[in-house]
Design a protein around this nucleic acid. Structure first.
Lengths: 225, 225
DNA sequence: TCATTGATTGGCCGATCGGTCGATTTCAAG
DNA sequence: CTTGAAATCGACCGATCGGCCAATCAATGA
């Protein structure tokens, strides 16, 4: 029986109830959330907040295991609230629930420490799955945004140097990206300015660019740094 | 509706059985996976593959709803296989299951189109949750890597312009990032070179940098482009 | 109304840059 | 041993850059 391979935590029955704090300014939405979450037999709603400041206060006071956080909140928005909560209680999980789908807001939310990102209007089943993920520390991203988030990742993706720069050229390139001038690079690498220029020429040739600015941009975009 | 958070069962009544293809070169691991997955009453294992090429062939032939994909495969690795499968069948879900935790590999896997990323050695319950996420198109990231992935996001993170550049300055900055020289920028924006230089000075002041290279780098790093 | 801000332009000058020649040394591979 | 790539240096020159000065005009808001 393969299910015995599953270590310690064999799901919701072993754990005590997951204590949940709901942060939502819309009364109707808040009621609906509470109804749904309270119906789940593995968790209990222990508090509600209508704005960001109340959320932080309540989170520190009640110490819930998980916070369901709206983003569009009066006074202090959900992203800032998440940031502060996560800073003070890193192990407290935060499920962000919002109707906004801007890339910037999504990224900001995830960078602020949110564990899951759900879209309002999606099925309640998905919210339940998101909570399941978050409770273990795993990340959940709504189907509508998952691809978009991962596309934002490609900027870092590299590892396979498209252009084979020599080690020394890489040294120079790094300093160029740091904004150093040729004389500065020369003194930092204990080279003459002429040598730096030679390497720079090699870099620009291999990268097929015309100046150091494009070289720096190419270096960043291709993750050569 | 039943609000059981245990994900493996939650969808079983509404959806037909989820047809799963297992790709794993280790025979023991493959057997264990099949045992566990087949035990879940909401899905059935319809095929197995031991290498990347077989995975692609079988995926196109059997048209499973979901593929559980190992990364370390002989001949063609799981990332390349995922990429090809996703290219031909975008709606086919892929759960990546591996023991590697390099950032580059994780990012590569997600960029290749994987819907979920699980770490071998984690509980089977987590795999079940990952499958639940992936089946709806949502993303799942193992707790051990979730934070790391989102930290990679910060490169793009901006939204709240740390530095408020004027619209015109942004125009100039964009062209600088494209490697344009001042004269080129001037003619492209129908400005005089002097104006471009003025804006550039403003940009460099606001970004607290000393030259156009650092301005370009700052623009990329802060996502002002 | 007056002040501020942003966009616009001009000139001057020294420093730096990028291109184009050249050169030597070392080290590893053929 | 010879070839080649990489790294190291030099000189020249025109173009560009960046800092500093000052100015006009429109729109926005106090």
């Amino acid at each position: 029986m393969p299910n015995d391979l599953a270590p310690a935590e064999s799901a919701s029955h072993v754990h005590p109830l997951l204590r949940v704090l709901i942060v939502e300014d819309d009364p109707v939405m808040q009621l609906g959330l509470e109804q749904f979450l309270d119906d789940c037999d593995s968790l209990e709603v222990i508090g509600r907040a209508e704005d960001g400041y109340a959320a932080i206060t309540l989170a520190l006071e009640l110490e819930p295991d998980l916070v369901v956080m709206d983003i569009g909140l009066p006074q202090l928005d959900g992203i800032a609230a998440t940031q502060q909560i996560k800073q003070k209680s890193p192990d407290m999980r935060v499920v962000v629930l919002t109707s906004h789908m801007d890339d910037v807001e999504i990224v900001a939310a995830l960078a602020s420490g949110a564990d899951a990102y759900c879209i309002k209007g999606a099925s309640l089943e998905q919210l339940a799955v998101a909570v399941s993920c978050a409770r273990t520390g795993a990340a959940y991203l709504d189907p509508q945004i998952a691809r978009r988030v991962f596309n934002h990742l490609q900027c870092t993706h590299s590892s396979a140097p498209v252009v084979p720069l020599s080690p020394r050229e890489l040294d120079v390139l790094k300093l160029i990206v740091e904004g150093k001038s040729n004389p500065e690079i020369a003194s930092e690498l204990f080279l003459s300015i002429s040598t730096v220029k030679t390497h720079l020429r090699g870099i620009m040739n291999k990268l097929s660019v015309d100046d150091r600015v494009q070289a720096a941009v190419a270096a960043l975009r291709n993750g050569l740094v």
